[in-house]
Write a protein that binds this DNA or RNA. Structure first.
Lengths: 129, 129
DNA sequence: TTCCGTGCAAAAGCTTTGCATATTG
DNA sequence: CAATATGCAAAGCTTTTGCACGGAA
């Protein structure tokens, strides 16, 4: 039996059991600390990479140059608030059926896709008008 | 009349008149050098930022942590080859009509979106099987 | 003893900025 | 002279990696 990893286990519980999407390494670190788990960034990083490799969580990129992680779940897209940064999930897939035409138009063989909406979340929309 | 900028002009001609998409700063620098224009990375960077501010070109992000630029044009999505990095354009918009339902499902007010396909380009697809 | 997890510190890869110089109007 | 462009070098940010230590099997 492999040696238990306190930090990695905490990360797994945190990220994988939360409905929050798109955790950054920093956010995970902060959340762990709030739970009384102090962990170095490198340990959090390694934990996340490992969990992603193991298929427990998955990595994503929302265009701000920071890697994000979230519970592995059914396919969905993402939407992030340009004001506060909150990341939400957009259920379902909006482009799946368009893949054949994309392949026809580009000549590429499509192996994956990512749809990312930006906007204002419920909290920020009123304030911004 | 503002002082002319040799480098910025070269960048504008290069990026804005090419049908190539998603130029990285490094790629722009290399292309300039091939044309006999030697320019420091910072100058290329500033030129690109300025041109983007002026609306001549636009910036985009394809999830690899590098900022990319391309001619400002009609709305289109992108597809990049996971083997050689080539970036192509996917004409039209695949999610525009889905925005109302996205807003309904998420509560966000949608202000923008980005669709990014990944796959294998014509050159790389055969080699990869 | 042999792994494996962790912290600390440092390297890396890009982007961005500061500063001094040069060039144009 | 005043304003802008440019090069060079260095700062910043986040992600990664190297090393050494310590605990578990």
């Amino acid at each position: 039996m492999p040696r238990p990893s306190a930090i990695r286990n905490s990360i797994a519980e945190l990220v994988s059991r939360s409905d929050r999407h798109g955790w950054t390494i920093e956010e995970v670190s902060a959340a762990l600390e709030q739970r009384g788990v102090r962990a170095d960034t490198s340990s959090v990083f390694r934990g996340l990479v490992r969990l992603a490799d193991d298929g427990v969580i998955e990595a994503l990129e929302l265009g701000d140059g920071r890697v994000r992680y979230e519970a592995r779940a059914e396919h969905h897209e993402h939407i992030s608030c340009s004001s506060c940064g909150t990341v939400g999930a957009v259920p379902g897939c909006l482009v799946e059926q368009a893949i054949p035409s994309v392949e026809g138009a580009t000549g590429f063989r499509v192996t994956g896709h990512r749809v990312h909406f930006t906007g204002l979340c419920v909290q920020c929309a009123p304030a911004a008008g």
